[in-house]
């Protein structure tokens, strides 16, 4: 199986095509015990919309009415997956190996691909992308048009500011009132464990939260050399906006501190019985998705 290289991933802006390509790649490697398809029980007709497959047009009705109608069938939705995407400024972090690829772009592609897979098995899905300035919510839905709508919303997302505080999160809890499986994508670079608290609260409310942490390789290896001025894309009161460092001298202390923080983060999620998957955006999306699906068997 040939994976999409980070360069292609970064250069391709058609998220629909990209997600289909990725998802097809993932499906080749996944043996489903039970394929879910569209239901057979008729639900309703609705007018044809751009993006609907012409296979779903009811041609007999077209002959009678001279209008395109799409036949919607009742699906037995077994699962609602809610994607929660952190769009704080730290998700703008680009790879140093492929500078045109950043964490947000990787996350978009990852979500769109998983949506494609979920759609293929008839599950419904929603999207909540949030930072303290902007919240984008696409309600639960299913079908190709819904999948395209999510892809369109994802495409328009930008990373800025930081994770919303408690007051800003309060109105969002309503989106989790119905049972759902939450998939939380973030870099989990948090100041006061605010993202972990968010996940813990969801867990307490009976909404299991599957976390995916997106990192770049440089964050794991700190491969810099010489005198550098490091700029923090996500500034707040406790972290300076910029720091001049001697990379060689700082490397070991950074790696130690980062490893400690990662261990603590994993431990927090382990308590909630939600295994944290940390992926480098330099690795293929297909691989990450396959691992994620294998790790969380309840998804697909």
């Amino acid at each position: 199986m040939e994976y999409l290289s980070p360069k292609i991933l970064a250069s391709c802006r058609d998220l629909v095509w990209l997600s289909r390509h990725v998802a097809e790649g993932v499906m080749l490697g996944v043996q489903h015990s039970q394929r879910r398809g569209t239901g057979l029980e008729f639900h309703q007709y609705r007018g044809y919309q751009a993006g609907d497959s012409i296979r779903h047009i009811d041609w007999k009705l077209f002959a009678r009415s001279d209008r395109y109608y799409v036949r919607e069938t009742e699906q037995e939705s077994r699962m609602h997956v809610c994607f929660v995407l952190d769009t704080s400024a730290s998700l703008r972090q680009a790879s140093f190996i492929e500078p045109s690829l950043n964490k947000l772009h990787y996350a978009k592609c990852w979500i769109a691909s998983l949506c494609w897979l979920l759609n293929a098995q008839g599950d419904s899905f929603s999207l909540l992308a949030l930072n303290n300035r902007q919240t984008v919510y696409v309600p639960e839905g299913q079908g190709e048009s819904h999948q395209r709508q999510i892809a369109l919303q994802l495409q328009q997302l930008t990373a800025s500011n930081h994770w919303p505080d408690q007051s800003q999160l309060a109105p969002l809890w309503q989106y989790f009132e119905r049972p759902c499986q939450v998939v939380l994508l973030s870099d989990f670079f948090e100041q006061d464990n605010e993202i972990s608290h968010f996940a813990a609260r969801l867990h307490a409310a009976g909404r299991p939260c599957l976390p995916l942490q997106l990192l770049i390789e440089a964050e794991q290896t700190f491969p810099f050399e010489g005198e550098l001025k490091l700029l923090n894309p996500e500034t707040n009161s406790s972290t300076p906006a910029a720091l001049e460092v001697d990379a060689e001298r700082q490397r070991q202390s950074y790696l130690d501190a980062f490893a400690r923080a990662q261990a603590e983060l994993k431990a927090r999620f382990a308590v909630q019985e939600c295994l944290l998957q940390s992926d480098l955006i330099e690795q293929p999306v297909e691989k990450s998705l396959s691992q994620f699906i294998q790790l969380h068997g309840r998804l697909c």
């Binding site: 964050e219 010489g226 001025k229 894309p233 406790s238 720091l243 001049e244 001298r249 700082q250």
Partner: peptide
């Protein structure tokens, strides 16, 4: 010095921020 955007800055220690140490 070269400027680099680095999100994981919170784990970089601050002790060499002083230019005198450079």
């Amino acid at each position: 010095p070269q400027k680099i955007s680095f999100a994981a800055l919170q784990w970089v220690q601050r002790y060499s921020q002083s230019r005198a140490r450079r």
